[in-house]
Design a binder for these strands. Structure first.
Lengths: 116, 116
DNA sequence: TATACAATTTCACATCTATCGAATTTATCA
DNA sequence: TGATAAATTCGATAGATGTGAAATTGTATA
């Protein structure tokens, strides 16, 4: 998946959620964050080593997640797919490795669903 | 449950979460919001008829929720207990009815968990 | 007190889900 | 090409969960 396609995915997400998030979509996102291991995976991607949340995309390999958490590779793969399916991240294969990047706009939309 | 006790509960929640929310607590809150019906219940309580999120507590009867959603009273009762257990609302019995109020600080803490 | 109403509890069930082992795919490298 | 390594897919399973029916508790009112 090239960088251009990733950008297209981001635009799609922004387009889908831009008009305002309905309750089902929001619940889906909350569900993606509702498991401790999956939330930790998401936070690892968001607050990645090199990048900040706003300016630069984080790159995070699956192997590191497997080492940090006490769960196996199939489970991590499953969790990453759910995060991607909720629009919270995108994943890209770089050679042998998988790189995950956050899609901050999705979380921003969820925040807008609730006041203050 | 008197008003004073409710206030005590609110203070307890603020005290517990004030030091910073860990991942398990946050996942628990996300789980409480991860089901469409339960999220809608929470939103009904938060954006209640009479009060705004910040200034005034919302009061919301269970019967109205049962009428709005297509689920029975036992299920609503179950959902309200989960929301209260996550620290997102408090409930108080007023005569025959149950009144629910949001605890905005809990959601505010969750928002602080993620950047921006 | 008796009746009606609101909410909860209990129990049961069907569905979902997090997890892992084994097999498979994809990619790098000797 | 063969070997190794990373990730995914598949199948199975134990545990969690949303829901409702029936019974119970709490409250108000006639």
């Amino acid at each position: 998946m090239t960088r251009a396609i990733i950008q297209a995915n981001i635009s799609t997400v922004i387009e889908v959620y831009g008009a305002g998030m309905d309750i089902k979509q929001a619940a889906k996102i909350f569900k993606a964050l509702s498991h401790p291991n999956r939330l930790e995976i998401y936070l690892s991607i968001v607050k990645g080593e090199q990048g900040s949340f706003k300016t630069e995309a984080c790159e995070c390999g699956v192997a590191e997640l497997i080492a940090t958490l006490k769960i196996g590779a199939p489970t991590v793969s499953h969790h990453l797919k759910e995060l991607a399916n909720a629009g919270l991240i995108t994943t890209e294969r770089q050679g042998k490795f998988l790189v995950a990047r956050p899609l901050p706009e999705t979380w921003a939309e969820v925040k807008r669903l609730l006041p203050e």
